[in-house]
Amino acid sequence: MEILASRMLLRPADYQRSLRFYRDELGLAIARDYGGGTVFFAGQSLIELAGHGTPNAGGSLWLQVRDVYETQKELTARGVPIAREARQEPWGLHEMHVVDPDGVQLIFVQVPEDHPLRRDTRELAK
């Protein structure tokens, strides 16, 4: 199986409320607005907010940022409630949690320079 692209699809209970959250509060750039929904850029992935279908929100979004502490300051300045403040986890990543209007957990992650996720796997093959 070959996966060409991926995105997180959310069907919120209140589309307009969630649209304001992702567009205005988080400040995500819009990739496409197709009338029945909006697709946002999220790093190397996409988040599609569908204004149609049965509301079905859940799960978590893992969003890598350059500096989670600066991201926390930016979101706090925009009035976004921080569910769990940024801190370094036992596994080495720096994480902060925010919850969207439908209860979806957004995990903002900073990967330190020396973390294994930054390892060049080509070096391991030698």
Rank of each mutant, 00 (worst) to 15 (best):
E2A: 15
E2R: 15
A5C: 08
R7D: 08
R7W: 00
L9Q: 13
A13R: 15
A13D: 08
Q16G: 04
Q16W: 01
R17E: 10
R17A: 13
L19C: 08
F21K: 09
Y22P: 09
G27N: 03
A29W: 01
A29K: 15
I30K: 04
I30V: 15
I30Q: 12
A31Q: 13
R32K: 09
R32D: 11
Y34I: 03
Y34M: 08
G37Y: 10
V39T: 15
V39E: 11
F40H: 07
G43Q: 06
Q44N: 15
S45P: 02
S45C: 10
I47K: 03
E48H: 15
L49E: 09
G51N: 10
G53Y: 08
T54N: 06
P55K: 12
N56G: 06
A57D: 01
G58Q: 03
G58A: 03
G58E: 00
S60K: 10
L61S: 15
W62Q: 07
W62A: 04
W62Y: 08
W62K: 05
Q64A: 08
V65S: 04
V68T: 12
V68W: 04
E70D: 13
K73H: 07
E74C: 00
E74K: 14
T76M: 06
T76H: 08
G79Y: 06
V80P: 05
V80W: 01
V80R: 04
P81F: 00
I82R: 06
R84Q: 13
A86Y: 12
A86H: 13
E89F: 03
E89G: 05
W91G: 06
G92L: 11
L93T: 15
L93F: 07
E95L: 11
V98W: 07
V98L: 08
P101F: 12
D102H: 11
L106N: 04
L106H: 11
I107D: 06
V109T: 14
V111F: 03
V111R: 12
P112S: 00
P112C: 00
E113S: 12
H115E: 03
P116G: 04
L117N: 11
R118W: 00
R118Y: 00
R122E: 03
A125K: 10
